[in-house]
Design a protein around this nucleic acid. Structure first.
Lengths: 341, 341
DNA sequence: CTCCGCCTTTGAATCGTTTCATTGGTACGA
DNA sequence: TCGTACCAATGAAACGATTCAAAGGCGGAG
């Protein structure tokens, strides 16, 4: 109803100057206990809440960091954002979250919004081609850290995960189980993350004599796509089936699993060992709990904020590209040592 | 580097008064084309971006709406937030998103933050007991709409979904298929949404002669909990099994499905018809595509913004509680008409 | 008693935008 | 030619918090 109380109202009510109220809030030790108590009581009685706009106007910058992710529904990003929030809170910053939903327009919209809000910096997993905009922003003192994408170090800092290493890890694990006829399921290969994982897998296979890797291009990354691939494998007959399958993501792996085990009686891991990627929540609760490659989302979020803070503190800090190595999570779908037969 | 350009810089550069620049931005038709062009060019050359803090300070309120959800990872909320964002954009408002993660502290933190930001209003699916805080906020002209929770209409507007109706819908569907020995899987019953769904199911069962409903309290709402329930059902032997199962959420249903079909050869829907709740993405890609109850998330988000706008426009608007009716989605897990044998 | 230094408190200036009363100019009718 | 009406443009005031130079008050030393 009535306009919210301002610092001036508090000052009147407590019979002090506005500067004193401000000091109570920002430099409590400069104020005597007596006065402080009176001011705090006035704040309480009036229900005063700082107006962040005024604060920020005076300060010239906000205490917020803008984060734009591809998809908040994706647990990878949810967890990353949470970690970033916590890390930012340590510096007294809050996070403004934007979900681009893989849409370049939405992404651009959020960058506009955050720029108007005068965010201190930006964390972004870009969809569109925003390098030039971000560079312009940086030159005005608003640094950006790219997330889940390796950046040209000349332009930006970035935090990403080594998909090649992840692919290697997965394939190597299958090979270590004694499997030799491997298949890679994923697609489209134009997606960098998919092709990198394949590259890593190839590297592992090349290290082992007599090992082979065939590539099964899936139509998309969904459970259904995985089931499609599974069905076409079954059609080949038992003799021509791979004994180890690495899927570029867990959804595909779950689809393959459904197709092989439920409709077609193939045993996992006995006949075919199966491993996915991302370690989504469902991986652990699949019919046969799914082995997977886990990305260190917490560390990514934390590190992203760290890099951002570095650039905030020293405007001319060198950009850094931090690459994390993913981690193998072994579950039942690749458990049990030996090769089939 | 250099401080961001202000409206005053633009005014100098374009040789006009600051008020004119402001008019170009906010009342373009009050400005002659000649002047407007000059100003726009200056804006472009200086890369001027409005400072929202100053704007908001002058206006006395922001153009943002705070949204606090229980879990951004939950597709229900993701979709709801997206709809709310779009609806808010129509009014020229942006959304600030906070994820309480079922944690009362985080929730409280976001309310603080949003209050400092002077949001116009709040959408919240509350965890803790925040009614009094929200009421205080409302009295200062910041209305709140509760989401996914039926509110006391004397205090707040709310948008929710009729869980009783959803439960009725699910059970009625099983009964319509000719099933008579029904089971409800869910828990803990202390969660309102679970108990309401059960209530609705009971109502449906009471309408049909010879129909029975047994309640299987699950330990949690996860796939694993569902599998546990499924296993204990199997132990009873085929004769004592229900012929229709309604799970209080899709995860439970997926667990039950895994247990029955994969490990124990029970056929779905032939031996047992199965229906879940929420219609999560995985429902459609389960081994046997899962029938479910879908909540109209888009409509909920849109309506929530609508109610909020009503309260913003007319401070004394009566509060309204809008209750949506969920929708039955039939898939293979309850397809095929007849009762077994 | 006076002076000095220290601690507390004061209040004006400032940030960037919007608003609005006012001014300056032009065109048109009388 | 003068007056009126209208349109464009002006620029000072206001929003609320922070900052900082300056003033005020107090105690202790000389």
């Amino acid at each position: 109803m009535s306009r919210a109380a301002s610092i001036k109202d508090v000052a009147n009510h407590a019979q002090v100057a506005v500067g004193t109220v401000s000091n109570v809030l920002n430099n409590p030790d400069r104020v005597s206990k007596r006065t402080k108590d009176r001011v705090l009581q006035a704040i309480d009685e009036l229900g005063f809440v700082r107006n962040d706009a005024a604060r920020q106007l005076r300060a010239g910058h906000s205490r917020t960091i803008g984060v734009v992710v591809l998809d908040v529904g994706n647990p990878f990003f949810t967890s990353l954002v949470r970690a970033a929030e916590d890390a930012a809170a340590v510096n007294g910053s809050a996070v403004l979250l934007g979900d681009s939903g893989h849409d370049a327009n939405r992404e651009s919209h959020y960058i506009d919004l955050f720029q108007e809000q005068r965010v201190q910096g930006l964390l972004i997993s870009p969809v569109g081609d925003v390098a030039d905009r971000l560079e312009a922003l940086r030159q005005r003192g608003v640094p950006t850290v790219l997330v889940d994408r390796l950046a040209d170090e000349d332009r930006f800092s970035s935090v990403s995960v080594d998909d090649d290493a992840g692919g290697y890890l997965a394939a190597r694990h299958l090979l270590d189980l004694g499997r030799r006829k491997l298949a890679f399921v994923g697609g489209p290969l134009s997606i960098r993350q998919v092709s990198d994982r394949l590259l890593g897998a190839r590297r592992a296979v090349a290290e082992v004599d007599g090992a082979a890797l065939e590539v099964l291009d899936s139509d998309g990354q969904s459970v259904l796509a995985g089931r499609g691939v599974g069905n076409s494998l079954v059609e080949r007959g038992a003799g021509n089936m791979p004994d180890g399958i690495f899927c570029a993501n867990d959804l595909l792996a779950l689809g393959v699993m459904q197709s092989l085990t439920m409709m077609n009686g193939v045993r996992i891991p006995d006949d075919v060992a199966l491993i996915g990627y991302d370690d989504i929540d469902f991986a652990v609760s699949a019919v046969v709990p799914l082995s997977s490659i886990r990305q260190p989302t917490d560390a990514i979020g934390r590190t992203a904020i760290e890099l951002l803070t570095e650039e905030l503190d020293a405007q001319h800090a060198r950009h850094r590209a931090v690459v994390f190595t993913p981690e193998l999570v072994v579950r039942q779908s690749t458990a049990g040592a030996a090769a089939p037969h």
